[in-house]
């Protein structure tokens, strides 16, 4: 399945909307989109996950890469993550690096 990526500067944060699967084939596209941002200057990066059906370790590495480049006090927020993907994030201990919320109102 293809991955559609939309990158939008918002007031106070940057939003990346994903639709599709983030796997070995598509994760490089996500990494490209993240690399194009000035991560070191971001206080908050939100990723819309509601339309993401699958996230492999390649996708997780892209998220880790982004958080490692962002300032220590910054927030990486995943919005609308499925239960299955949230379980994987929890299992790998990455909940210390990302904030999982159900909707933008909760961010």
């Amino acid at each position: 399945m293809k991955l559609t990526i939309e990158s939008i500067a918002q007031d106070g944060y940057h939003l990346i909307c994903l639709e599709g699967d983030v796997d070995t084939m598509t994760a490089p596209d996500l990494l490209d989109a993240l690399t194009a941002l000035e991560l070191a200057a971001l206080s908050e990066l939100r990723i819309e996950m509601a339309q993401v059906g699958f996230l492999s370790s390649a996708g997780l590495r892209a998220l880790v890469f982004a958080k490692q480049k962002m300032p220590h006090a910054s927030r990486l927020v995943l919005v609308g993550t499925s239960t299955e993907i949230a379980d994987v994030i929890t299992k790998t201990g990455l909940t210390q690096a990302v904030t999982l919320v159900a909707s933008h109102d909760d961010a």
Binding site: S56, A58, R61, V64, Q68, H72, T92, G93, Q96, A97
Partner: peptide, 22 residues
């Protein structure tokens, strides 16, 4: 995986095989 390890210190490798096993 050391879940308590700071994200800055996380190694890139090993995550995939960890997920296979778990």
């Amino acid at each position: 995986i050391d879940r308590g390890q700071a994200i800055e210190d996380r190694p890139i490798g090993g995550l995939g095989l960890f997920l296979v096993q778990n």
